[in-house]
Each structure stands twice: as C-alpha cells, then as structure tokens.
C-alpha cells in the first residue's frame, strides 16, 4: 500500500515540474506584462518596478529563483495586489472555493447515485428514461445558463432562496452548490447506471437472489460495492474539476473564492498569481486522483491484496 502511494507521489514530481515549466514560459511569452497599462508609464518607474520584482533578470535566472522559492513553499509576491503574497491570496480565496466544491460534490454524488441506481433497477422503463434524460440535459447545460435559470425560478419567482452571496443569509449556499454540481451529478448518474447494470447481470447477484435475500440487501450490499467502483475512481478528477472550474459559478453568485483571482490574474498578467494558482490546482488534482485511485482499489479485494494490505 505505502509502496503504491510512494511510487505515485514520485510519479507526480515530473508531472508538476512540466506543469510549472509550461505555465511559466507560456505566460512570459504572452504579449504584454504586469506593468503595461493603457497610460504610458515613465520608463524609470517601470524599470524600478521590474527591478523590484526581478523582471530585469534573464528569464532562466527568474525561473531558477522561482523554483527555489517554490520548493520552500513560497509562491512569491503578487504583481497586482501590492504588498500581498500569492500565498495570502490563495489562503483568502481557497476556503470558499473548497466549501463550494465540497457541497457541489455532495450534490453530485447524492443526486447522481440515486438517479443512477433507480435507472439501473428499472432499465428501459420511465424510471430509467426520466433520470437519464435529465442527466443528458444536465451534461449539456452550461453553468452560465443553469445558474441564472435557477436564480430566476427559485430566487425571483418562487422567492425560496437568496439569489447570490456566500455565507451572508441562510440558504445562500444552496443554489451555487447545485449549479456547480449539476453537470457532475449527471455524469455520476450515467456512471452509476452502467456500473450497476453490469453488476446486476453478474452470476453472484443471481446467487444472492437464490438465497432469498430481500431486494434491498441484494442491491445495497451485493451490487452497490462493485457498481460504484467507476464512480469512486471518478470522484478524484471530479473534485479537482469542481475546485478549479468554479470561476463561472463564483462570478454568478458573488462567491469570494479562488476562481475569481485566477481569471483576473490571467487578464492582469499577474505572473506569480497565475503560476501560484496553477501549481496549487495541479497539486490538488494529483492528490485527489491518487486518493480516489487508492479508494477504488481498496474497494476491490483482489486489488487490495495487490496493494499489500488485507
């Protein structure tokens, strides 16, 4: 087990290095810079600023010193938020993003698995077609359409829920979570359905029925474990995607999260902030993929034996 994790962590190092290198050079080669504005800046001022942020040094030297800082956990100062470091900005934005992501994941798993199981138990009936059609629509519908639509229905017409905000009024976290989680719920529903359908046709489910077990035992004890393995393997990438893809939802609902910083940083050529958030998300994605792989393997006794635990 530990050997498996250690080898995966070691594999992650070159991945992260490639991500850092690519991002570093791509943003540098993009036209413009953090201090180019519409108004002409006095050349001396610009030079002084560039010297302060070491932008006057050769590119490779900058890359070297950035890597050195990074190893010490220092993402460097922000170019556009004077006096604040990237670490501070991430720390300020991440809690809201993480919370939003977590709720959205919860919505996705609960709704998605429930719909998938119902559909798999009643294949080719209306209880299959309705949730699966809804899932298809959920996958197709972009968040910038679904968000305003939900706001319109539940916020303005029915007046059940607040239309925006995060942690200010009770219930204001519900709509953003659903908006962000919907597409993932739809995907999980489809994964659950196909996983469960496959397991339900296995010989050992027939054995369970032949033992006279109640249907809920057959479904939840005998079938679900094998049926959700594809879902569990998807959870890692899903959570990483929820965290890094929440920009639109954060904007619609005025959530003070990380996505905002991320997009603004790109517009502003805030080199260190772009790099910092990219590296941060890359680490998250690697970690969550590893976690879901370990969990999926642990659910399967054969693979668990391969991991060296029993």
């Amino acid at each position: 087990m530990w050997r498996f994790i250690a080898s995966r962590v070691l594999q992650a190092i070159p991945v992260l290095f490639i991500v850092i290198t690519l991002t570093f050079f791509l943003v540098r080669f993009a036209p413009g810079g953090p201090f180019s504005t519409e108004k002409a800046v006095v050349p001396e001022v610009k030079r002084a600023l560039e010297a302060q942020y070491q932008l006057d040094q050769p590119l490779l030297a900058q890359f070297g010193s950035y890597l050195t800082d990074l190893v010490h956990g220092d993402f460097g100062p922000s170019f556009k938020y004077p006096g604040r470091t990237v670490n501070e900005l991430i720390a300020a934005g991440f809690p809201a993003t993480a919370e939003l992501g977590l709720y959205a994941l919860l919505v996705a798993v609960v709704l998605g698995m429930a719909a998938g199981i119902v559909a798999a138990l009643n294949p080719n009936s209306w209880r299959d077609y309705v949730p699966m059609s809804a899932a298809m629509i959920g996958i197709c519908m972009p968040t910038f359409l679904l968000g305003p639509l939900l706001v319109l229905i539940f916020g303005l017409w029915l007046e059940w829920l607040p239309v925006s905000g995060w942690g200010e009024v009770s219930g204001d976290k519900i709509l953003p979570s659903i908006t962000l989680g919907a597409a993932y719920a739809a995907y999980i529903a489809r994964l659950t359905r196909s996983g469960m359908l496959e397991v339900l046709s296995q010989d050992y489910i027939r054995t369970a029925r032949a033992k006279g077990l109640p249907e809920y035992v057959v479904v939840f004890k005998h079938a679900l474990r094998g049926g959700v393995i594809p879902v569990v393997a998807f959870l890692g990438p899903a959570f990483a995607g929820l965290l890094s893809g929440s920009f639109v939802v954060e904007t619609i609902f005025q959530v003070p999260g990380l996505g905002r910083f991320f997009v603004q940083a790109a517009f502003n050529r805030d080199y260190t902030l772009i790099l910092g958030s990219t590296v941060f998300f890359a680490v998250l994605i690697v970690v969550f993929n590893l976690l879901s792989d370990v969990l999926a393997a642990w659910l399967n006794p054969r693979l668990r034996a391969g991991l060296g635990v029993k």
């Binding site: 050992y204 027939r206 054995t207 369970a208 094998g226 659910l299």
Partner: peptide, 11 residues
C-alpha cells in the same frame, strides 16, 4: 450454480 468463479460475490 455452474461457475463457482463468478457465482460468489468477489467483494
């Protein structure tokens, strides 16, 4: 059943 390899729940 016929096939004891698949008739027991592997999980």
């Amino acid at each position: 059943f016929q096939d004891p390899m698949t008739s027991l729940n592997p999980f």
